[in-house]
Design a protein around this nucleic acid. Structure first.
Lengths: 132, 132
DNA sequence: TCTTGACCTTCCAGTAGATGGAAGCACTAT
DNA sequence: ATAGTGCTTCCATCTACTGGAAGGTCAAGA
């Protein structure tokens, strides 16, 4: 299979697949004409990577997950550890975003949004940390 | 004030403040010795930027917000527009993260996390999109 | 056979928003 | 004079791609 085929089948852009080869995540063979020649195993790996990335795992996480996936003598605890750490990071990010959202939503709803200059959003941004 | 002073007062790292000067967000004067010389107005701007960044506004948003802030004849509608767009982006991100979190949490809790190789997390990542 | 168009190649640059570090000048206190 | 801190610039690095230029390859059609 050429890169276009695996791109279609994996859902990853060809550019991304080349990039993944660059950083050593996949190692497709080459045809006589210099084209990358992907085997079913490569496609499988790329699909794995795409799914892991879609779950927000970092490239480094993906590398470790791939290694574990290919290691028949792995301990599931190692996989779980990576996933749980990632889950913690997601939870932290969620909390941060929810905090932002709450503040921002309050500001947005307090702003008249007309053609006058008075604006509680700007007033809040300009407020000194401890006004009192 | 030197950069260390405004760093302490604004809560922004000196590196970040230099970066903000690089990209034209602040334009401190220079002392005879070449040091940046920050006026109270610069500090005010930096605090504004820090607060806007903490709410997740992009640098480009910050630039526009600063411009509006300094424009006495602004329409609050313009500020609100920027904030509402940002709120939408946050909501989209939240939804994405919540979806990730749900999938990931289910996978983590389904994994034994012992020294055996069987792992539902890896199984899920390796699953083909439509198995049936 | 020639040509068109889709596909493939490599390489370089750029994105956002900083952050780390090196080399070296300035200032303060002893 | 010297030590220590703070300031300067410049360059590299990070994440995970993405865009684009210049050019080679291949299959189909006139």
């Amino acid at each position: 299979m050429n890169i276009g085929d695996v791109a279609r089948l994996s859902g990853l852009p060809a550019k991304t697949i080349r990039y993944y080869e660059d950083i050593g995540l996949v190692k497709p063979q080459r045809s006589a004409n210099g084209y990358r020649s992907f085997q079913p195993g490569d496609l499988h790996k790329l699909a794995f990577l795409g799914r892991a990335r879609a779950l927000g795992f970092s490239i480094d996480d993906c590398r470790q997950l791939m290694t574990l996936y290919e290691d028949q003598s792995r301990a599931s605890a190692d996989v779980k550890h990576i996933a749980r750490d990632h889950l913690k990071r997601i939870d932290a990010k969620l909390e941060e975003l929810q905090q932002m959202r709450a503040t921002l939503a309050a500001l947005v709803s307090s702003c008249a949004g007309d053609n006058r200059p008075d604006c509680p959003i700007l007033a809040d941004l300009a407020a000194t940390p401890k006004p009192g």
